[in-house]
Design a binder for these strands. Structure first.
Lengths: 245, 245
DNA sequence: GCAAAAGTGTTACGTCTACACCCATGC
DNA sequence: GCATGGGTGTAGACGTAACACTTTTGC
């Protein structure tokens, strides 16, 4: 293995995490102390990312970012865009940072994103690693805020055409959990009865045998899971229901 | 301007051109003569592309590829994926070629694609620059054949959710031309009456005043154009008619 | 007047929307 | 027995699919 970095090439991940109220993004703290440890020159947030090693490819780099946070196997990451403007790094802070890290300021970033339910994935928040609701982001360095915006738009449009909602929900889910996931992720409201009818009619949303999930003081609800096998077997016609024309 | 190349970074374009019978891809010849000019060691095809200059960004590089072929302003190119596996260049031919060009074999290629009607765009075919029907591709070097396949899949799925069909058709088009464009690009057949009804019902497909297009010995047909202004003003709900759920 | 492509309507069927109440459970 | 969230059906509007003949033109 050749662990020298390719100096002008990095990979970053937009990690979307759904909780009961919000769609969140996982961010790393970016701090730089120059003169006084109590007054950092830079103190904001950025996407988790790293430079690519000479002997690894893009997917491997993205995977290793994710492995820093959790031991769970994280899957279904999507490469969505590469940022390579020659003006990407242009604020004083950004230039300071790249100089202090010894990387080139003309830097290509290949961005992946990933969507998952916060509750089932074990990511430990720390001082320098936190979830932020997508509509309450903190101050963010580089062009990462617009990357997040782009990725969110892409996520929303993929939700309409690909079965990625099932990544945002635990493997076994109730129909109401699925509905709420749609509502939060797309920022819409849905009619419960119509939603259930539509979901139940999909062959790839399979009811689980007599298993129910009990909480306190209410009717236990039926669990379902998504079958990608069944989904894949359907024709394209069943997937894409209507075209833009 | 700094015209030194970034040695590990290239941009390539999949240029889709629609004619009366086929969806085509524009390819460049790849030849290398080592011993005998009449028997090239490499003699196959590749995507038009080039390395990125230190002072230009990705979009500019993609534009300059296109400017090699035509003076028409080409628009609506989309960045769709970046290829950066460390095993991308691994056949003997590919290694020969990169060595002969003095570029690194660990190379990142940012791929754009573009869809346009062949008839209205002025690209002159030469010995080393030709259109090939997407289902009759010649021998292709590097991983460019799978790039073309990926791009075509992406194009087809975007046709369902974005108004890019209107790029594949002249600015003023008849409904039958539009229908045939859909049929060729998606490799489907459509019912003419239903297609017309649906198209006419879209506010962004606007009939042009009394203008008709005459050819020989047949009824002249009405022309339409696509209004992106009207399209943009519609709500997202009008665009995406149905979700995967 | 004929060849060639443009253009047009109706019916049956399925899907989507809107909407309000009963059910099962744990305390 | 009550609070909490789970679960259900129907009617009208809308969109889609299937299908064959008439119109306009240039020669």
């Amino acid at each position: 293995m050749d662990f020298r970095k390719i100096n002008n090439l990095s990979v970053a991940c937009v990690i979307f995490g759904l909780d009961a109220d919000n769609l969140n993004v996982l961010l790393n703290k970016r701090t730089l102390n120059l003169f006084d440890d109590n007054f950092p020159v830079i103190d904001d947030w950025m996407l988790p990312g790293q430079h690519v090693y000479k002997s690894s490819n893009l997917e491997q780099s993205a995977d290793s970012i994710l492995k820093n946070f959790t031991k769970e196997p994280l899957t279904n990451k999507k490469q969505f865009k590469t940022y390579g403007s020659n003006r990407r790094v242009n604020t004083e802070k950004d230039l300071l940072w790249t100089r202090s890290k010894g990387v080139e300021s003309r830097n290509l970033t290949v961005v992946y994103y990933l969507a998952l339910p916060i509750e089932t994935i074990n990511i430990e928040e720390k001082e320098d690693l936190k979830w932020f609701p997508i509509n309450k982001l903190p101050e963010i360095g580089f062009d990462h805020e617009s990357i997040i915006t782009d990725a969110y738009e892409d996520l929303k449009s993929k939700i309409m055409t690909e079965p990625i909602m099932f990544n945002l929900v635990p493997m076994k889910f109730t129909l109401n959990e699925l509905q709420i996931a749609y509502e939060i992720a797309l920022n819409i409201t849905l009619d419960n009865r119509n939603f259930r009818k539509k979901a139940i009619s999909k062959p790839y949303i399979v009811p689980l045998e007599d298993k129910k999930k009990t909480e306190m003081s209410k009717k236990p609800s039926k669990l379902y899971m998504f079958s990608s096998d069944i989904f894949e077997k359907l024709s394209v016609k069943d997937h894409i229901v209507s075209s833009i024309l």
